[in-house]
Design a binder for these strands. Structure first.
Lengths: 344, 344
DNA sequence: TTGAAAGCGCTAACAA
DNA sequence: TTGTTAGCGCTTTCAA
């Protein structure tokens, strides 16, 4: 049968000391003699004792940072996670992940983290209002990644979506594109004021197209590769199809490339630009032009901010990563034939 | 200031009942009158009460299934996770993820799950010995995904790696390849007996090559795209390079394709076959020939097995998914020129 | 430097 | 059907 797990009491008895003494040793607390530390450590090793997180959480801290993630099968979120783990590793804080389930609205995942009494929360692109996050930030050290909030009680890490979008549009304009479509987020539980990064991208797209007197063609779709594929098919079936697409992010861009590749269209006929620079984007067979917003760095920053808050810092800190354009072969100068075809 | 969180005591007081009564209501336990249920529910809603996981875990169950994952930035593991979440959602069990950190050996992640008193564990490709897992299985309902263990105290879900590898090799032979290289796992904390899926793949590769009197060329490398890229470069620099590669899994295959694409080599000169069928493999620009081993289904199976164990089943159950070859454009019939160049 | 003892929030006997 | 009560394993005053 499974032997019952050793408790602090067992260790105390084995070492011939009090429970309090053992507690002090495992927490490396002040006021323990060397001989006591040795005896206790020996007993701990002997019994294979490991403190239970639940019992510790009852009296103090769970020594855990909780991360909420919208989806686990998204390469950009994975980049962020890598950054978070890199920073938290060796800090004495464990990390647990509460991925949003299908039904979930983000709230559920964050609440489950609170129920576990995590010492801090890193919320990645949470689909909850800023007001709700403020409440949460009041109770637990909190860092939000992605949304352009302007909070009082938590920190925020984002990319500079406006600058990134300007880089995208300038790139496409320079390549001669004028009929440029744009994919952006579908209806979403948008916070008030709207802070979704996709909204910033769309805003710049609108602004720069309008500035040049060009008609906009924005399509709000679910943020999935499938949706982007389907929408691109319909885009390319237009009498006068666009010559370029600014996809809201790389997953959408990959879906668009799926459609254009199936039709045998190259970048001279249909250029595609994404956002995020997921790892596969740099693969020579894909060569997706995109914006690198340094997901690992975002995760790393969020982790350090959250540690600061655990240490007592309040107020709010905003951090942004600087976007960089990665020009690859999915975008190219428009061919003269294509250009002529689309002439008014 | 942050108001202090409501406890079961607060709810009891507000509803004018005992703590036990509240406990029964939230656990949907037997023996509660409708009127009491109503009053208590009202008080719970009123106070925004949520039970603390730690306190519940002290007395019984944490209602949590823990998942251990080697890496979070791997598309195949992501497929497995999606399957696990799909199944566990709505079962009343929460899921938490303990991803292996860099230093970790898998043991650390699993132990941290035990420290949290999860009700069950799903271990994905854990780098620990079968002996160690048996110990763990004795203490907590456990399902292992990936390794070909033959356990007594936990369940196992794997693909049929031998059959999958036969499909790969038959495919390459049929396309006329005879000089076939193979990438497999580097030194790893291999259990005893060796149960790693990569070993099974290599075994079949060896067997089938030898059967045909062909020389094997197996290269044990770290399981990263970078390592595969570098190794492929050196492979292609050989005087008499192989015409095909059976990569241990898709990430390695993508690294190999990176190298061959950079050299402008098509599948007629250098065919690449992977394993896993990660989502990007089916992208027309990649078109990676690979083995689908249905990651979501593996996760789904593991989740249902683990629920059975929670319900009291003991012994051990083994489940396998049937592999399917996805032939795409990364593999092709060897060109006559290439064939001639390599003739003995 | 060490130990005794209270109590964190909950569940599960058991009694009423 | 409802309430009383005894802990679960730890941390943390507070005394010794």
């Amino acid at each position: 049968m499974a032997p019952t797990r050793a408790t602090i009491e067992d260790v105390a008895r084995a070492a011939g000391v009090s429970r309090a003494a053992v507690s002090k040793v495992i927490r490396d607390a002040y006021g323990v003699s060397d001989s006591m530390r040795e005896r206790v450590s020996a007993a701990i090793a002997d019994l294979g004792y490991r403190p239970r997180v639940a019992a510790r959480a009852m009296r103090g801290s769970s020594r855990t940072v909780g991360v909420q993630l919208p989806r686990v099968d998204n390469s950009f979120f994975a980049r962020i996670l890598v950054g978070v783990f890199d920073h938290l590793e060796g800090t004495g804080y464990q990390t647990i992940l509460a991925p949003m389930t299908h039904a979930a609205n983000g709230k559920a995942a964050l609440e489950s983290l609170v129920d576990r009494q995590v010492d801090a929360i890193i919320a990645v692109a949470p689909a909850v209002s800023q007001t709700w996050l403020e409440q949460l930030g009041l109770r637990v050290p909190l860092v939000q990644i992605g949304q352009h909030d302007d909070p009082e009680h938590y920190d925020v890490v984002t990319g500079d979506d406006e600058e990134g979008s300007r880089l995208v549009m300038a790139h496409l304009f320079e390549l001669g594109h004028r009929r440029i479509a744009h994919f952006t987020v579908d209806q979403r539980a948008l916070s008030d004021p709207p802070a979704d990064p996709h909204l910033a991208r769309t805003r710049i797209y609108d602004e720069l197209m309008t500035e040049r007197g060009l008609p906009t063609d924005t399509r709000a779709i679910p943020l999935t590769e499938e949706a982007a594929y389907a929408e691109t098919i319909s885009l390319l079936s237009l009498a006068d199809p666009p010559t370029a697409l600014f996809a809201g992010h790389d997953e959408l861009a990959l879906g668009a490339l799926r459609a254009s590749a199936e039709r045998g269209l190259g970048p001279e006929e249909f250029s595609v630009v994404g956002y995020d620079d997921v790892p596969i984007a740099s693969h020579p067979l894909i060569g997706l032009t995109t914006i690198d917003q340094f997901g690992e760095e975002m995760g790393f920053l969020a982790a350090s901010l959250v540690l600061e808050r655990i240490s007592g810092r309040t107020g709010s800190v905003l951090r942004q990563t600087d976007p960089v354009l990665r020009a690859r072969r999915s975008s190219a100068r428009i061919s003269s034939a294509t250009q002529a075809a689309g002439a008014d």
